[in-house]
Each structure stands twice: as structure tokens, then as C-alpha cells.
Design a protein around this nucleic acid. Structure first.
Lengths: 113, 113
DNA sequence: TATATTATATAGATAATCTATATATGGAGG
DNA sequence: CCTCCATATATAGATTATCTATATAATATA
């Protein structure tokens, strides 16, 4: 299931890149926004997100910069790169293909054709 | 991502159980049928399927029986149990929730509301 | 005899996500 | 004042789904 390996299991990368499409965001913010935008379905864990962000940065899909907050620890913002935007498009397409195929199998069960 | 762990990454179990809903099938047959029913999107590997089937059997979601074929090795057929049907329903629901949430995040990007 | 297709099986590798833990800041409650 | 909770980032180690590679065996075909 080559598709699965890189995408569906890795759907988190897709969702995170998608969040950044709207504008730069810091890690904690992404966790909260993902929860909100998925109607409380996705509870992304910090221990999942931060290593993921570091990986995306290493691959050049995002860049990071630090910024002071009004209070608390300084925040590390992430921004989509050109390469990251391309990757996002690819991942969206792959997700649609995968989800479509699953739906097709699930619907194709009781076939009266 | 509790949902993800048990379902989306494990979507193969869902698809295999779904195939068995139509009637008993043996492993090799499932690989071929999944390819066909997904329009050549899913190429499930033997090394993925057989351990998965053993696991489903251990959990009591399927039962197995051997049957001679006209030629070649005897085939090991799998049948959905009552418990397997229940699990299938649950997994279908969970998949729909997950896929729906992903779609929601993907669509919710460029929001002009 | 060699090779391809059908058919099942296991061992070991890879990688995504989790849990648990550590750090640091600031506000609120006791 | 001290403790707890929310914010915020980070890493180590475990779990597990899937993959690759390999082994087996029967039969058809070249």
C-alpha cells in the first residue's frame, strides 16, 4: 500500500501543511486549531507535532522563526515554503485518491448490478 | 490521534472485513478483488495480508477453514463472525468520521465566511 | 528444465504516532 | 508564598501498521 505509507498514515503532515496555508502559525496554535477545525475529532499530541515540524523543516517544506509573545515562552512560528506548497498539493491529490478508493470499496459491497 | 491509530492507519482491516461481507474469501482472492474494487489503487501485499488475517482470526472477527481447489495449493477461506460484523460497522463509522474531519479541514482553508 | 502463476507463510525493516517526561513562563487559588 | 494549571517547546522510547524479502508448494507452459 505505497499510497498509504506516505499519505494516509502520514495524513498529519497534510493537515499541518494545510493549516499553514492560511498563514504562519506556531505549534501549540496548530494543535488547538486542528481540534477546532475538525470539530474536536483530531487531538494532535505535542509529542507527535514537534518532531513532525522538525522533519518538515529538514525537508524544506517549512521555515521557522522565533517571536516573543506578550507573555510566556517565545513562540516558534512556521511558514510554508514554495516547495511546501507543492507538497501540499500533491498530498491533497493523494488523499483524495485514497479516500475515494476506500469509499468505492465501502459502497461497492451490496452490489445489485 | 487515537482514531488514526486504530483505524486510518489500520484501514486495511476495515477493507478486508468489508470484502468478506459479500461472502467467504481466501487471501489471494482478497488481494485481487481489492485491486479490482479500488480501480487499481490498492495493491495489498501478501506479507501485509496474511499476518493481518491471522490477527483478525485471533481476535475472533473471522473464522477460517481449508478447502481444496481444482488445482494448486488448498485454499484457506475466511468467514466473518458476528463479532466481525460488529467490528466492521464500528470501523465504517470511524472511517466516515475520520474522512469527514479531514475533508472539513481541507475545505475549511480559504474561508470567506 | 526453467519460469510464471497461484497460494500461504514468516522474519526483519521502516516509519508514523503515541506515552511519558523535561524544560520554562505566568496567572490563579489556597 | 507555594502549588497547580495553561501555555509552549522538546526529546526518548514504545507501539504497531505496513513493507520488503524470502521460503514453501502445486501446476501449467515454454
Amino acid at each position: 500500500m505505497e499510497l498509504d505509507r506516505s499519505l494516509v498514515s502520514g495524513s498529519m503532515a497534510l493537515l499541518v501543511l494545510k493549516l499553514l496555508e492560511d498563514g504562519d502559525k506556531y505549534g501549540y496554535e496548530m494543535i488547538e486549531e486542528l481540534k477546532r477545525r475538525s470539530d474536536d475529532t483530531f487531538h494532535l499530541k505535542a509529542g507527535t507535532l514537534y518532531p513532525l515540524l522538525h522533519g518538515l523543516e529538514e525537508k524544506g517544506l517549512v521555515t521557522a522563526y522565533e517571536q516573543e509573545a506578550a507573555a510566556g515562552k517565545p513562540r516558534r512560528y512556521y511558514r510554508l515554503t514554495k516547495s511546501g506548497k507543492d507538497a501540499l498539493r500533491q498530498k491533497e491529490e493523494a488523499w483524495n485518491a485514497y479516500a475515494g478508493a476506500v469509499m468505492h470499496v465501502l459502497k461497492g459491497g451490496a452490489c445489485f448490478g
